[in-house]
Design a protein around this nucleic acid. Structure first.
Lengths: 262, 262
DNA sequence: AAGTGGTCTAGACCACACG
DNA sequence: GTGTGGTCTAGACCACTTC
C-alpha cells in the first residue's frame, strides 16, 4: 500500500491525544476524540487506533477507553466492528432527536403566566357517541377530559384526552384542581412505551372558538399515546394555534455546545 | 445476613432478582430491575438496594451492576445520589424524545416510490432580495436550493435551503443529480449542534401551486439549522402538506417493546 | 463517621470477522 | 489463526451526603 503526502500527514497529524483535565477521564477522552473527528483530523471512513493503542496514547486502562468510545458509538459518530476496528461514520443521520416539553414548562420557560382549565370531564364508552380509540376494545370504559392551557391568559393548547379506565381506575377520584391531568398521569402511572404523531390541521368552528383564533387558521397537533406493558393508558391530542406556538429543540454533542443565534 | 420471604415483603421490595439469560449480563440486570419498577415492585420514591447488595443478589461484579443502573439513570427511571442511594423517580417527564427521519426514508419505509427534483438553485447574498439568514453576517455568500420531494409522484415536502458558502464552498461543485442536498450535506459536512423548530402554517398561492394543494390548506413546517463548531452550516425549511404527511415516532424502554395498534 | 455511588486499573476470556 | 471489540471480575480510592 502506498500513501501520498496528504495521506501520510493525515496519519501523522493525530498526535493530539491531549486531555483538558476537566472532569472524569472517560469524558475527557470522549471530548478529545470527538474534537479530532469534528476538526477533521479523523475523517469519514478513517480508522481510529485500536483500544489497545489508545490505552497507551492516553495512558488509561482499556475499560476507560472503551467507555469513552462506546459513547461515541451510541451517538453514531463512529461504528465499531470486531476485527475491523473503529471507523468514523459517514455522518449521514437518518434520524434526528427532537424534545417535546410539557406545555406548562414551555410557557413558564418563556417567562409567561401558566394556567389551565378543565373544560369537560365525562365517562365515555369506546365506540359510542363518536368517541373511538382503536387501541382499546369496543365498549371499554374511558374517561374523557378536555383541558385548555393558557399563557398570559391566551390559549396555547387544547388537550383532548382519553384515559383507559380498565388500566387506571383510580383516576376517577382525581379532581385535577392543582395538577393538570398530563402531569398527574406521568407522575403516577408508569409507562413502558410512547407513540407520538405530529401533524398540521386547520381550525374548525369549535376549535377556533375555544382557542380564540380564526376559522381556517393553521394548528399544530401533537398526539401522544402511552402504553404500560402492552396496555393502553392514555391518548391525548394537543392542538396549538399555529401563530402562538411552535416546538423548539436544540441538540449539541456534549462538550461542543455553543450559543447560537436564530 | 439473610431475610426470609416474609421479611422482605414487609420491606415492600419483593425478591425477583432473576435473570432471563438473554444477552449480556448487564442488559439482563437492566431488564430485571426495569421490570420490577414497571410492575410496581419498586414504586416511586422507593430505594433500590445498594450496588453492594445487588452485587450479591445478582452474583455479578459491582462494575456490571453499575453499568446496568447507570443506564436506568440515563433514562431517568431512577435517580442516583451518593450516600442517599438509588431512588425510583417520580415518573414525571418534562420532555419526550421524538425522532425526525429523512424524508426519503419516510417515503421508502411506507413502501412508496421516492423521487426528488431540484426546482431552483442560485447563489445569494445574505440580506439581498429578501433572502435573510440571521445566523450569518449580512453580505455573506449563500447557496439557495429549492427541492421538491415526491412519494409516488405526489409532492410530500418542499425543502427551501440556504447553505453558508463561507463554511462549505465545495458545495458549489455538486450537482445533486443522485443524492439530495440534505443527504449530501449530512454525509460530507460534520456538525456539532442542530436546532429544530416545528410549526403549522397555511399554504399561500405559491406553496399551494408547488405542492398541489388548496390555498389555505394546513402545512407542517420543520426548520432545521446545523452548526459546526459555532459556524452555521445550513438552514432548511421543510414544508409538508398536512393531509399527506405526519411525523410518527415510537419509543419504548428497551426490553419492553410491544406491538401497538394505532 | 460512615454509607453510597463515581471512577479507575489490571487482567482475563470470549465472539466475531478477516485473511 | 489473529486482531479487534464485548464483556466480566476483583479490587481500589475517592467524593459527596447524610447521620
Amino acid at each position: 500500500m502506498t500513501l501520498n503526502a496528504r495521506d501520510r500527514s493525515r496519519q501523522n497529524a493525530p498526535d493530539d491525544f491531549t486531555l483538558d483535565g476537566d472532569g472524569p477521564l472517560f469524558r475527557q477522552i470522549e471530548r478529545a476524540i470527538t474534537g479530532m473527528i469534528l476538526r477533521g483530523q479523523y475523517k469519514t471512513g478513517d480508522r481510529l487506533p485500536s483500544e489497545a493503542d489508545l490505552t497507551a496514547k492516553f495512558g488509561a486502562s482499556r475499560q476507560t477507553i472503551n467507555k469513552a468510545i462506546t459513547e461515541l458509538a451510541k451517538r453514531e459518530l463512529v461504528a465499531r466492528n470486531r476485527r475491523a476496528g473503529t471507523i468514523v461514520s459517514a455522518r449521514f443521520q437518518e434520524s434526528f432527536q427532537v424534545q417535546l416539553h410539557d406545555i406548562s414548562e414551555v410557557v413558564l420557560t418563556r417567562g409567561d403566566l401558566y394556567e389551565f382549565r378543565i373544560l369537560k370531564r365525562a365517562r365515555a364508552i369506546n365506540g359510542e357517541n363518536g368517541m373511538t380509540w382503536t387501541a382499546i376494545p369496543n365498549g371499554g370504559a374511558m374517561l374523557y377530559l378536555e383541558v385548555l392551557h393558557l399563557a398570559n391568559g391566551a390559549p396555547v393548547q387544547l388537550e383532548r384526552r382519553l384515559v383507559n379506565l380498565a388500566a387506571v381506575p383510580w383516576i376517577e377520584k382525581e379532581d385535577f384542581s392543582d395538577t393538570p391531568p398530563a402531569k398527574w398521569l406521568l407522575a403516577n402511572i408508569p409507562w413502558s412505551s410512547v407513540r407520538h404523531q405530529l401533524r398540521a390541521t386547520t381550525a374548525d368552528n369549535e376549535l377556533a372558538g375555544i382557542l380564540g383564533i380564526a376559522v381556517g387558521a393553521a394548528c399544530l397537533v401533537v398526539e401522544r399515546q402511552t402504553f404500560h406493558l402492552a396496555a393502553p393508558i392514555t391518548r391525548s391530542r394537543m392542538t396549538h394555534p399555529g401563530d402562538r406556538f411552535q416546538i423548539d429543540s436544540l441538540f449539541a454533542l456534549s462538550g461542543f455546545e455553543n450559543a447560537e443565534q436564530d
